[in-house]
Design a protein around this nucleic acid. Sequence first.
DNA 1: TAGATTGTTAATCGATTAACAATC
DNA 2: TAGATTGTTAATCGATTAACAATC
Lengths: 241, 241
Amino acid sequence: MYQSFFALKFGLMFGLMLESRTSSFQSETISEGTIHRLSLYSRLLATLEEEGTTVVSSRDLSERINFPATQIRRDLAYFGQFGKRGIGYEVCALGRSINEILGVHVRRRIALVGVGNLGSALLGYRVLREHNFEIVAAFDNDARKWDRVINNVVIHNPDRLPQIVECEQIEIGIIAVPPQAAQNVLDVFVLAGVRSILNFAPARLSAPRRIKLRNVDFSIELERLSYFLQHECDTTSKSVV
Amino acid sequence: MYQSFFALKFGLMFGLMLESRTSSFQSETISEGTIHRLSLYSRLLATLEEEGTTVVSSRDLSERINFPATQIRRDLAYFGQFGKRGIGYEVCALGRSINEILGVHVRRRIALVGVGNLGSALLGYRVLREHNFEIVAAFDNDARKWDRVINNVVIHNPDRLPQIVECEQIEIGIIAVPPQAAQNVLDVFVLAGVRSILNFAPARLSAPRRIKLRNVDFSIELERLSYFLQHECDTTSKSVV
DNA sequence: TAGATTGTTAATCGATTAACAATC
DNA sequence: TAGATTGTTAATCGATTAACAATC
């Protein structure tokens, strides 16, 4: 009886230990904030490497990027140990590790729908390709644009989207159409199996829960700017973003 | 002696009361999240009004927009009382109140720098003007574009920016230039007295603390999408944004 | 009066920050 | 060994959510 009690207790303890193990290694969810800052750290480290710096402390980073040193160390701690106590971080190695975490070395294939002014601007952004985001196909309703090539990308009839998404192994969709058409484009993407979508149209869209939908919605940014102008309240402005 | 003690105590109490009064009416800082949601509520209420709905409860709103009803009530409570207990909110009145809070009725005058593809797209966005954001002047380095008019907006030599910001009473600046040029444009805006700036260039910028700088930085959004793709982790995706 | 729903206070949750032992 | 700086645990802070009295 004592034994079984012990076994039960031990079992529970072991269960709990396993749980906490798992949660701190694998299933612990990482906050959006952390991911956002991680991409800022990545950029900063690239700059530091260019400048010839080889080692930085979290305090150095903190001074450049304006987040508390503790937060930087905490953010990194979610993913492992990257520094040497008493020394700091090796710029080059830390940069590589963060890039690894973010998966920036993985080439991401993108389909762009809507080749108006905004879509053309996106096709022209070198930064995209530099970050391993490759627009491999574009689509537009305007038949006169079909088969034209901009920056090595062919513009297709949107009817061909599902087929091209499949054979081009496209993972990410970008919506750059007028707001009225945006929801429809999103639905087409979802049906075609694209699970990550970036929407530039100034429209509220809805998608199934399993889809990662991000809005780059500057009209909301403007509304928020407008609020802060109105209320002359500075508290949230960041000097470096 | 008792009297002075009482006076002191009363004075302190009164001071504290005033403080809490002030803080709950005026100086209490409103979180970015609340402002963001407020602009979503505003859009939703406009839709509801179009649909002919006259009264909604926080629960109705909650079901449409996917935030908890309590959060909606809390967000509104920062600014006053807008509903009737047992009834709900009058769609039209609440919409007006929120728009008042956000200041959407105030016409905001904007200067746009950079009339490439992205800049042109912004000049063409009707949604901007519909939201009372008016681009009143554009600037570009390319002399061939000077004095050309796009969507009623004249393109100027950037040297004229300070002068035009002043006489056109421009409050908001938009940066739509290549990344290398972005920091310089920001500095020019700041010197010219523009305090709210929206940056579309994929570059990290720094500004004095009093400046409200927002980045509409889709390369970071892509990096975050890429992370979530990599880690096949759904937790943060929002079905409606 | 009974049912509904607000506005607000209190409890919870999660993220940020401070503190510090570990260790280079 | 002394000084520096990490990685991590504990404390704090702020935002979200639950609960409920007020009241339509």
